[in-house]
Write a protein that binds this DNA or RNA. Structure first.
Length: 861
RNA sequence: GGAUGUUUAGCUCAGUGGGAGAGCGCUUCCUUCACACGGAAGAGGUCAUAGGUUCAAUCCCUAUAACAUCCACCA
């Protein structure tokens, strides 16, 4: 027997291991239609956070729903090697042990990272298990697996041959802490406070000077010229002359180029080709040299003279001091400007001239744009993200893919030791001794971009690939569209001639309860494991899936997790009640001939709920679906039908009694199945408590809307009863009568009410004395269309009259409203017929009520 | 500079071209044998502002404001 309260800890125990070991997570039933998803592979860098819990919960609900709907569901698990992030973690761990990465050497270091990886994959598995995820572990992948490495090499070679990958010397984003190049999306621009330094640049052989403003004085050692706008009348006369660099006393030629904005700063720009992308373009244009003055670790090199070896920011300080002492500092202006930071290390990124590998984006992007403008396009949910994607693609720069790291897919490029020639090859050349492989590895996202097909064994034509690719849906947060979603689309169209997924469900981020982004520095992160310990994973999952709208951020709210738990407890106790009243041999095959009006009513509501829930599940609108279920469970099933059954099950009619039990069981089964994708553990527990269950709820199928169990005619009478009950309760409250105070009620009606109506009116209102009368009584009463309920009670007549007059006014107002609408010729001409009928019916009802009230007033007077 | 989103009850948020909903909080009452992790009743909203379209607008359109996010630029 079930306990009085639902205990998540007991309920969640052992179930996951059981499901897994029984093979319920394993896809492969080819008699069914397939449904496939790939998990966004989490980084093997640490614990999963609440954002992962959110993302995977949505996917698990979809997976479980589809499985229950009869699909062969494959949800592919996997993890990402996460180059920079993981390498940084391992470097730090080794450092704490007093070991340096470089001393260890490449091979040994990579071994250490594999150890780390194995450790964290275990942690991730444990967390997936806690979340209850229906992942097919038999097909699990890691982005650095051998198979995936083959895929990566294959793609690199193909793109190189197609001219889509090239090597070039360019200004890239350099992370001086990790000492690697970064792509543009790995740079986060932040508005920070800085200084704008105004320096005197004396003209060569003259007493005059130009004022040049810069935010980065330390790069002055790499300057090659000063630039002004040719149209700038202030400076035209200086073009072609020389100025003295106050940092090192060197001569700088003054050139003219339209790039310079006359309005900005002083209109004179210093040009540092090796440390600024725009300056680099100018440098190329005028064939200027591009001296590098900063080392890879962010310290100054010998070009900086006395500052050689100093950190770049330390140098800035000292250099400004020096220039000031020499009388060449004019002023320092405080400004707020946007500065690029490394996504991983957080340090300020250095624009840096270096030789790297790039993916040419134009061609790939054009194809994706055309595809996303076609009818066959991948459907973004919500749709507006397609626009975000297209705009991004239209403005995309080439993608820097080489990283100066050890952990990752090593670039399959080999340099001939004698000639220096580059050989790109999927496998090492046979005469490897004559070659040296490129030292760099690829951007992690290069392999992630292949995930929806490389995970199934591509480029081999595997059975998995043939059956499960393209996948049906990808679920991820909007912040990952540029990193991942867009690249998967590009690569999939290019490599497989197919889309990677039919749909993309985009969700938002989880913020803290004050709406702030969760961050390590604020310490406001929420650990899903803590929440699970307190409220259970089912409540967490229910909260995550139902408290958000696609594409919008949500706030974490402990109150809502708690109220989710209360809802589950409600279902638990409804089950408990039903199980207490049926026996182990019961089944749910009720008979139609014994259905009374309330049975028909609840079956109608139940089936409409199935319809609404299913429709929303099909649209992946998990929040809306859950609301239909929630309202049905509380309002229709628990508050009304189960309460009513307490009376009904006392009936002398054994057929009615048994039929009622079957209906209760039938509906309970449906409710459990509909809550199951959201909260699988409690659902399994309840399911297994039901008579005649299968081995697991995971083998059960989803309830199906049955139009033969919809009895629209039942609604009116039952709603009337509900209203009467409510009014009687209110009457008692208003007259300070105890809830169980028994009123004498007399009913006058022209309606053909069922016996159950009277029976249940007695039951719900604690009124033992209820009977029909023919004539109107001079008593206090509740008035409904075609129905009046007299209450025998000692109530002041004048109060009754007051209330009646108030009701009268209300009715007049309503009638007025309806008549106005119906007398509007435009409304009658243009409004839909159903709406007109609705308003006509309303008017009719209000008129009847008005008549009854008038009559009542007359009788009382 | 460009784009997108948000604005609805005290708080957090759903939602719809045809009389506004939930959770939590609040008020009153009830420990009635599924559940006090509960039940019953209730208070509380010019649906940001101004125009427009429509028989009808909280919803569609156009502006405006506040807040948020993304992209680009910044010598």
């Amino acid at each position: 027997m079930l306990d009085k309260h639902y205990n998540p800890k007991l309920v969640e125990k052992d179930k996951y291991e059981n499901w897994k070991s029984k093979g319920y997570f394993t896809a492969g039933d080819i008699s069914k239609q397939k449904f496939s998803m790939v998990i966004p592979p989490p980084n093997v860098t640490g614990k999963l956070h609440i954002g992962h819990a959110f993302d995977t919960t949505i996917q698990d609900i979809i997976a479980r729903y589809k499985k229950a709907k009869g699909f062969d569901v494959l949800w592919l698990p996997g993890t990402d090697h996460a180059g920079i992030a993981t390498e940084a973690k391992v470097v730090e761990r080794l450092k704490n042990l007093g070991i340096s990465r470089n001393e260890l050497g490449r091979e040994k270091f990579v071994e250490k990272v594999w150890e780390w990886k194995n450790e964290y994959v275990t942690t991730i598995h444990n967390q997936w298990a806690k979340m209850g995820l229906m992942l097919d572990y038999s097909k699990e992948r890691f982005t650095l697996d051998e198979d995936l490495n083959r895929a990566v090499n294959h793609v690199f070679k193909k793109m190189y041959d197609d001219g889509l990958i090239y090597q070039g010397e360019r200004i890239i984003n350099w992370d001086p802490v990790q000492q690697t190049a970064l792509s543009n999306v790995e740079v986060i621009h932040k508005n920070i406070k800085g200084e704008f330094y105004y320096f005197k640049y004396k003209l060569y052989d003259s007493d005059e000077y130009l004022t040049v403003a810069t935010t980065r004085p330390e790069t002055m050692f790499g300057d090659v010229c000063l630039t002004v706008n040719p149209k700038d009348e202030r400076y035209q006369k200086y073009v072609g002359k020389y100025a003295i660099n106050p940092a090192n006393g060197e001569k700088l030629i003054i050139i003219a180029d339209n790039y310079v904005d006359i309005e900005f700063g002083t209109g004179v720009m210093k040009c540092t080709p090796a440390h600024d992308p725009n300056d680099f373009i100018i440098g190329e244009k005028y064939h200027l040299p591009h001296p590098i003055c900063i080392n890879k670790d962010g310290t100054m090199n010998s070009l900086a003279g006395e500052f050689n070896g100093l950190d770049r920011f330390e140098c800035r300080k000292k250099l400004v001091e020096k220039i000031k002492n020499e009388g060449n500092l004019i002023k320092i202006e405080k400004i707020t400007h946007s500065v690029g930071h490394s996504e991983r290390s957080g340090c300020i990124v250095e624009p840096y001239l270096s030789k790297q590998w790039f993916v040419k984006m134009k061609q790939l992007a054009e194809r994706s744009i055309a595809y996303q403008k076609s009818d066959d396009k991948i459907q973004f949910i919500p749709q507006r993200f397609n626009k975000v994607f297209i705009q991004w693609m239209e403005n995309i720069d080439d993608w820097c893919i080489s990283r100066q790291l050890w952990w990752g897919h090593r670039i399959p490029a080999y340099y001939n030791k004698k000639t220096g020639e580059v050989l790109v090859s999927e496998v090492p050349p046979k005469d490897i001794e004559n070659y040296k492989q490129d030292e760099d590895v690829l951007d992690t996202w290069f392999s992630s971009a292949l995930w929806p097909f490389s995970g199934f064994g591509w480029p081999k034509e595997t059975d998995l690939l043939k059956r499960y690719f393209p996948t049906d849906i990808l679920v991820t947060a909007y912040d990952i569209i540029f990193f991942w979603v867009s690249r998967m689309i590009n690569q999939s169209l290019y490599l497989t001639n197919n889309k990677p997924f039919n749909k993309v469900l985009i969700h938002g981020l989880i913020r803290d309860n004050k709406g702030r982004k969760m961050s390590k520095t604020l310490g406001n992160g929420v650990d899903p494991i803590d929440v699970i310990d307190k409220y259970g994973v089912d409540a967490l999952r229910y909260f995550l899936a139902t408290s958000s709208t696609p594409g919008l951020d949500m706030r974490y709210s402990e109150e809502k997790v708690s109220s989710s738990q209360n809802f589950l407890n409600k279902i638990w106790n409804a089950s408990r009640y039903i199980l207490l009243n049926i026996d182990s041999t019961s089944d749910s095959s009720f008979e139609k001939k014994y259905l009374d009006i309330f049975d028909r009513y609840i079956l109608t509501k139940f089936n409409l709920t199935i319809k609404n829930v299913t429709n929303n599940m099909e649209k992946y609108n998990l929040g809306a679906a859950s609301k239909y279920l929630y309202n049905f469970v509380y309002d229709d099933f628990c508050s009304f039908y189960i309460e009513l059954c307490k009376n009904k099950l006392n009936s002398d009619n054994i057929n009615i009694k048994n039929n009622t039990k079957k209906i209760l069981l039938h509906i309970l089964q449906g409710v459990i199945m509909m809550i199951y994708p959201y909260s699988p553990f409690i659902s399994e527990e309840l399911y297994l408590s039901l008579p005649k269950h299968k081995e697991s709820i995971m083998l059960e199928s989803y309830p199906i809307y049955n139009s033969k169990e919809v009895f629209k005619d039942s609604i009116k009478e039952v709603e009337l009863l509900k209203n009467v009950i409510k009014d009687i309760r209110l009457y008692k409250v208003n007259n300070k009568l105890a809830p169980n105070y028994s009123l004498k009620l007399k009913i006058k009606t022209s309606l053909n009410l069922s016996d159950e109506f009277i029976n249940n009116l007695k039951y719900f209102s604690y009124s033992n004395d209820v009977s029909f009368v023919n004539e109107s009584l001079k008593l206090n009463s509740l008035i409904y269309p075609d129905l009046e309920i007299f209450i025998e009670d000692n109530i002041d007549k004048s109060e009754v009259l007051n209330k009646l007059n108030a009701d009268l006014e209300k009715e007049k107002f309503e009638i007025d409203r309806c008549e106005k609408l119906l007398n509007n010729p435009n409304f009658m001409k243009k409004a839909p017929k159903e709406k007109i009928k609705l308003e006509q019916d309303k008017l009719e009802n209000h008129k009847i009520l008005l008549q009854q009230i008038l009559e009542k007033i007359k009788n009382l007077g």
